[in-house]
Simulated scan of single mutants.
Amino acid sequence: MQILVADDHKLVRDGLRPFLQELDPGAEILDAATLGEAIKVIEEKPGIGLVLLDLMMPGMDGLSGLEQIKTRIPETPVVIVSGYSTRDHVVSAVQAGAAGFIPKTVSGTAMVNALRLVLSGEKYLPSSTFFEDPNNQTINPAAAKPTGAPPPFDRLSRREGEILAQLVEGRTNKEIAIALSLQEITIKVHLRNVYRKIGAANRAQAVRIALQSGWVMPEVIN
Rank of each mutant, 00 (worst) to 15 (best):
I178S: 07
V106C: 03
T86P: 12
T86S: 15
L119E: 10
T172N: 04
D61K: 15
K188H: 12
P74D: 06
L119G: 13
L66R: 00
T76W: 08
Q183Y: 13
L191R: 14
R192W: 00
D133G: 04
G65K: 04
K145M: 09
E132C: 01
Y84M: 14
T147M: 01
T129L: 11
D154R: 07
G100S: 11
A143F: 05
R116Q: 15
A98P: 13
G62K: 04
A99H: 11
L182R: 14
N140V: 04
M57N: 05
G108K: 11
T147Y: 08
H89F: 14
A179N: 09
Q68N: 07
G62E: 03
A110W: 08
V94E: 11
V78I: 13
T76M: 03
P151W: 03
M57A: 10
T109K: 15
I176W: 02
D61L: 14
S82C: 03
S181P: 01
E67S: 01
P150T: 07
I102Q: 01
H89A: 07
I139R: 06
L167K: 08
P146Y: 01
V91Y: 13
P103A: 09
P74Y: 11
K188Q: 13
I185R: 14
E162H: 03
G83L: 10
K188V: 12
E122F: 15
S157Y: 02
T76I: 04
S128T: 13
A144E: 12
P146D: 01
G170W: 02
F101D: 09
D88T: 11
R87C: 12
A144H: 10
T138C: 05
E75Q: 12
I178P: 00
P77M: 06
I139D: 00
E169F: 02
H89I: 02
G97F: 05
T109I: 11
L66H: 03
R158L: 14
